[in-house]
Every structure is written in C-alpha cells, then in structure tokens.
Write a protein that binds this DNA or RNA. Structure first.
Lengths: 232, 232
DNA sequence: CATTAATATTGAGATATCTCACATTTTATA
DNA sequence: TATAAAATGTGAGATATCTCAATATTAATG
C-alpha cells in the first residue's frame, strides 16, 4: 500500500491540531487506509455538495479545495481553504453521514477517500483517537465563529483585510504569494461582490498597503492591514 | 445526590441528538456529576465569554440562555437559544478549554456546572460516549451552517421569517407563543437592527402572516412564512 | 395608582454595498 | 501569433439596511 509519507507531511500540515496520521502505528495506518480510493478533481470540479450523504471521508493529497456554504440563489460563501494533508469535512458520522457544506477544487487536486465505516471503526477502536477528532471539531467551530463575526460585524475594507491576512497567515505562510484563487473566490471568502473586491484591492494598492498585480499579492504594511481588519 | 430526573427530562430535550444522559448507568451518572456545582443566573447575566477558558461544562437546568458571537463593536449575533437539559457550549477540550462563543441568560436560569476534567475522563472512559459527543458537534456545525447561510444570503424579510420559524419549530414548539426574548434579541437572532426588526414585524402583521402583540406571537400563515424565509 | 424607566415603534435621511454596463487585461485556443 | 474567451477593473445609479430622533407603549417602582 502506498504510504502517504506521513511523518514528513505533517510538518506541512497547517491544521491547528495535530494531523490525524502522525502517530499511527503501522497496523492502524493499514486499517484506516484499507479500501481507500484515490480520485482526481479538475479545477472547479465539485467534490461534494451540502445536503448529501457521504460514504467517504475526503483527505486532500495535492492541490487546493474550498469549503463553502451555498444559498438558494446559487451564491457561495467560502468558509475555508483546504491544503494537502488536511481533511475536508467530516460528515455527520454516528448520525446520517450528512455533509453540511460543499466543497470544490480551486486547482487540479488529488484526494484520498477513506471509507466512512472504516473511519468510524477506527475512531471507536481506541480512545487515543478521540482527542484528535475533538480537536478537529474545535477547529471547525472556531473557524465558523471567526467567519461569522467577520461577515456580520465588519465593513468591506475590514473583510478584505481579514481575508488577505487569512491567506498570509494560514494558507501561504508568506507576505508575498501567488494566489491560486480567483477574484471571485476572494470575494466569496470576504462575503461581498466581485466588483467591490476589486475596488478595495485597488484602494489598498493606492494606499501602499498591498501590491497587487494579477494573482500576485504582496503585503507591504501588515500592521496597517491588521488595523483595518480589526477596526474597518 | 440530586438526580436530574433524566429519563423524563430527555423527552423535553429538543436537541437533535439524544440527550447525553438518557442511557447512563447509575455509576456513570454518579461519576459525571461528582463535583457538580449549581449556579443561578439572573436574566441578562453573562454565563461565559468567548475567548476565555472554562473549567466547566455548563448544562442548563431551568430558564433559557442565548449563545452568541460578539464583534469588536459590542454588537452580538445570536447563534442559538438553549433550553433546559441542553448543554451550552462544550469548550475546546483536549486543547486549551477555550470557548469560542459567549452565553448569557435571557431569563432567570439555573445551570449545572460539570467539571471539565471529569467530563474528559467520562468521554474517554467508554467508546459508547463518542457517538453522543460527535452528534453534539454535528448539531453545532449544522446550526452554524444554517445561521451563516441565513445571514449572508437572505434579505431582512427572510431573516425575520426564518427567526420566527426557528422559534416555532425549535424553541417553543407551537405556532403561538409568548417570547421570553426581547425585540433586541430577536434582532440579534436575525442579524439586523432593532428598528428594522420592528418594521418587518409590523409589515407581517399588516399582511396577516403574524399576529404580534407585545411578546405574544401567533403565526397565522405558516406556509407563507416559510415561503418568505426561503425566497425573501 | 401614579410616575418613572425601559422597551418598542415609526419616519426620514444617511450610508454601505450591490448591480449593471462597459472597458481592459489576462488566459486559452486555433 | 491571432483570435476568442474568460477574468478583472471601473463608474454611476439603484437598493437595502442602518442610524438618529421623536413618539408610543409596556413594565417596574415608590
């Protein structure tokens, strides 16, 4: 069986909590990944849809995915971006295996599908797995709170500043990066229209807070960006 | 030790998932509630604040509490209302015991505080507790998704309709009820200003969708309310 | 019961954000 | 490399929602 080179991968794993796989014994690892499937997703392709049940737990191997909620009008609000060696959503296991959010690939990606029943057995097999699972949920909840606060209380400037800081601090780990997401995605991340997003990026550029050229973004004044993210 | 009359209580428990306590053995029950404290909260009093750590798990015994996120500007957005025999938030156990949201009593309430370390031991003590815990998290996540979708994609009419339907279907279990929350709370639940909330209630009354008099609310046309909640 | 304080309603103007239409740039394709 | 297609930027008007100020109602208190 292919080994996901887990010790190494976990270094890259930006998930707040430990990676699920970094302290598994070989038999545990074998068990969890028995029946695994690997699937490729083209940029833009849907990985799963909210309101559907899933027989799998999706683990990203390469590329990037966005997790979002959809309104009746077809608009989307991005909750987080998922990078390799992170899970996408864990369905409502021990209930109906429902997914409450949707996901699609923002660039060509490869994912590993873990059988949900195997995952359940894995979770129940040892109480050493429980803290990891709980940390996953903690993380999801803390992110939700941040996202809600962001979109409810902040004006457009603050929302864009916040989104850029998210990219800097939690996605690309650098003040200068090439976004692999479109302006529309950035708009959906900030919870506003594409046009407003453009306007505010232009304004930040004029204020020398950012340097933006196409998908290249460079943060020139992080302090000020943080200030804006906080007070609008 | 006082017994919370758990078999009976769980009938009242509106939590999607089973109540944590309805199938505990007596020794388990004894263990979980060892060291428990009972505390009273007056209407309006804060139960806990987001960003703080908690040594307790709070379980509501009487009254009603609201769970909300706060912005830097002091505004609040209510995520859900908690009734007796439900947990308020489970802190980020197996991490830093942080709370990501705030809670306060909307009417005089009594709560039972369960020692968080006892709770952790309880969770780890048997894998039969895991599904219950996971269902709690599933529930929290599904509610977050609903709330986010509600506030991001819907106009004011839809948000008020949605909030009223929440009260009907998940809080009071009746088309006609006396709200124990203020207009401000209703506004915070719908994510809009107090004034706009008043206006829309007035409009729904004029359209004979609702009958509102003070805190008495009666839904006259639920079909239409659902229609509005969906399409605005 | 009268008075005060708190809560709720209403209207009008201010403001933030969106939408639409079009121009421009970038990317994909023949 | 030329051309079409897609993505992005920009301005102006439309719209939803908020804020402020005044009034009305309900609840609390002496």
């Amino acid at each position: 069986m292919q080994n996901y080179n887990r010790k190494q991968n976990c270094i890259q794993c930006s998930h707040r909590s430990q990676c699920f796989f970094n302290d598994l014994s070989d038999p545990e690892y074998e068990f969890l990944f028995s029946n695994k499937k690997e699937v490729d997703f083209k940029a833009g392709e849907t990985i799963y849809k909210q309101g559907t049940e899933s027989k799998y737990l999706v683990f990203l191997l390469s590329g990037m995915a966005k997790i979002y909620v959809e309104g009746d009008n077809g608009k989307t609000f991005i909750l987080e971006l998922i990078k390799p060696f992170q899970f996408l959503d864990i369905p409502a296991i021990f209930e109906d295996d429902m997914l409450y959010r949707s996901s699609s690939a923002v660039e060509d990606s490869r994912a590993c599908l873990i059988d949900i029943d195997v995952f359940k057995s894995f979770i129940l097999s040892s109480n050493k797995n429980i803290p990891k699972l709980v940390r996953h949920f903690n993380h999801a909840q803390s992110r939700y709170s941040l996202r809600v606060t962001n979109v409810i209380y902040k004006n457009m400037d603050a929302r864009i500043a916040d989104s850029i800081l998210y990219l800097v601090n939690e996605v690309y780990f650098s003040r200068a990066f090439d976004m692999n997401i479109s302006r529309s995605d950035l708009a959906d991340l900030a919870g506003m229209s594409r046009e407003s997003t453009s306007r505010i990026l232009g304004q930040f550029k004029a204020q020398q807070i950012l340097n933006v050229k196409g998908r290249r973004v460079e943060v020139l004044n992080k302090k000020q960006l943080e200030q804006i993210a906080r007070y609008g």
